[in-house]
């Protein structure tokens, strides 16, 4: 079963030992630049190259590229077909199917859109593959976020497999009682309530137990917490985080202005 918290791939090295929030800052900077930074294709190629080198440095090139392709291939195929035929700025016709014409511009645009998403995905995967979710939550706690807030952010990710399990069990239970969910659209809509309602009711009932469990594990203890793993934020990394985000922000502002002026 897919367990989002187990995306972590065991490894060592400088990239791995970066503070989780430094890596997260990197991902945020990439996302900002990709969408708002100045430049178009050349920007994506440049950022892509940087991330590619980072992946090599982290020793995560193969898994991250593989996962990116696996996730993006369906999107790429759809875009290449749809944009090739229907991109509004299509002029250079490559071939035609009946009355539909396939154009070079659309093809390029499809590649561009996919590459934009691909670059961000790749950066996120490097973060996820090299950071244990539990270390991320520790980093958030140490950086001063309240433990309750950290729980709200992190625990749902751990609960996802349980949730998926329950959805599956609920479907089986209701089907066993004769609920038809295999029919047409209307049948499926009608079946939605018996499937969703137990999920929500059950989650509410579990909330008390979860709170109880946290209480027995001293989650509500007052005072300084300690950490199993020492997550040390050096001054140098602190500066790096600020630098990454500031540069990304400044470039984004430039990009916004540029677009406002030239479009």
């Amino acid at each position: 079963m897919f367990e989002p918290h187990s995306l972590y791939i065991t490894g060592k090295g400088t990239f791995y030992s970066l503070h989780p929030l430094t890596k997260l800052s990197g991902v945020l900077a990439v996302a900002l630049l990709v969408f708002l930074g100045p430049g178009e294709t050349e920007k994506i190629i440049l950022i892509g190259l940087l991330i590619f080198l980072t992946a090599v440095w982290a020793g995560l090139l193969l898994p991250s590229i593989k996962t990116t392709i696996k996730l993006l291939l369906p999107l790429l195929i759809v875009l290449v077909v749809v944009q090739g035929f229907f991109y509004p700025q299509n002029t250079t016709i490559l071939f035609s199917l009946g009355k539909y014409e396939y154009a070079w511009e659309g093809f390029l645009y499809a590649l561009f859109v996919t590459a934009r998403i691909g670059v961000i995905l790749l950066a996120s995967l490097l973060f996820l593959f090299s950071t244990k979710l539990s270390d991320f939550s520790r980093a958030l706690t140490i950086s001063g976020l309240s433990s309750g807030l950290v729980y709200l952010i992190v625990s749902p990710i751990y609960m996802l497999p349980d949730f998926a399990d329950r959805i599956h069990r609920i479907r089986e239970s209701q089907q066993s009682r004769g609920l038809d969910i295999e029919g047409n659209f209307l049948v499926r809509i009608k079946a939605l309530f018996p499937l969703v309602a137990p999920l929500i009711l059950g989650a509410l009932v579990e909330t008390e137990s979860r709170a109880l469990i946290l209480e027995t594990r001293a989650f509500n203890a007052i005072g300084k917490r300690s950490s199993l793993v020492e997550i040390y934020l050096s001054r140098r990394e602190r500066v790096l985080q600020i630098l990454l985000l500031t540069v990304a922000l400044i470039l984004s502002v430039i990009g916004i202005i540029e677009r406002a002026l030239f479009l």
């Binding site: 329950r166 069990r169 066993s176 038809d180 309530f193 018996p194 137990p198 009711l201 059950g202």
Partner: peptide
């Protein structure tokens, strides 16, 4: 046979009641 039509012949009491009550 569809699951919904098989439901006329076979009943199944699952372990967790909260997976069905709504």
């Amino acid at each position: 046979e569809k699951i919904s039509s098989l439901a006329h012949k076979v009943g199944f009491v699952f372990q967790h009641p909260d997976d069905q009550i709504f």
